[in-house]
Amino acid sequence: MSVEILTYAALGARLNISAAAARSLARRLRLPRSLSDDGKALVSVDLAEIRHTPHPPGGHRAGEAAQLRALVVTLQAEVAQLEARAAGHRADFEYERQRADHLIAELLQASAETKAAREATARLEGEVAALRTTLRTSSPSENHGHSARRLGHLAASLVEADRKAGRG
């Protein structure tokens, strides 16, 4: 338990580490420091209390760095492939979206035409029913002129409905 006053270089030599590592260790352990007459930093340290094991030299890390660089290159290539695949999927999505929009427009048009046809059918059925009722209830002499007009009106309605259906 003897306290020694050492420079960073001397501390590093005792612990088999560099002077910079010794300085970092002294800061981390908050060892008391002072300045010598020649301006060098001195550290008060009890070497028996310091349990420091130096890390292996950086040679092993160079191999790891090369492996990591290779992994980064591999991952970048994989990202590029995935981006290309995503772009293809996006194009497929846009095509299908346009197709769906076109089909929806056609469906809405067909629905509107179906509704118009049902309305025309209901109106024409109403006119036919009115014409039949008139034929049954009135006498043949009164009915002839009126029925002919209604029949002409019904024929005109049928022709108009047919023309509308032909436009769509």
Rank of each mutant, 00 (worst) to 15 (best):
M1Q: 05
V3W: 07
I5H: 01
T7N: 03
A13R: 08
A13P: 00
R14H: 12
N16A: 14
N16M: 11
I17F: 10
I17M: 09
A20H: 14
A20V: 06
R23N: 11
L25A: 02
A26H: 08
L31Y: 08
S34T: 05
L35N: 09
L35M: 13
L35S: 11
K40H: 11
K40T: 12
A41C: 04
V43W: 01
S44L: 09
V45P: 00
L47Y: 00
L47N: 02
I50A: 05
H52C: 13
H52L: 13
T53M: 07
P57C: 07
P57E: 12
G58L: 08
G59V: 01
H60Q: 08
R61P: 00
E64H: 12
A66G: 11
A70W: 05
L71N: 07
V72P: 01
V72R: 15
T74Y: 00
L75M: 09
Q81R: 15
L82D: 10
L82M: 14
L82V: 01
L82H: 14
E83W: 05
A84M: 04
R85W: 12
G88W: 01
G88R: 15
R90F: 08
R90I: 02
D92W: 09
D92P: 02
R99I: 00
R99S: 06
A100E: 05
L103M: 05
A105I: 03
E106D: 07
L107H: 13
L107K: 14
Q109W: 03
A112Y: 03
E113C: 03
A117G: 06
R118Y: 00
R118A: 08
E119W: 09
A120I: 04
A120D: 13
E125Q: 14
G126D: 15
V128N: 08
A130F: 13
T134G: 12
S139Y: 01
P140E: 03
N143Y: 12
H144F: 13
H146V: 03
S147H: 02
S147N: 01
A148E: 11
L151P: 02
G152Q: 11
A156P: 12
A156Y: 15
A156I: 07
L158P: 04
L158D: 10
A161I: 00
D162I: 05
R163D: 06
R167V: 14
G168T: 10
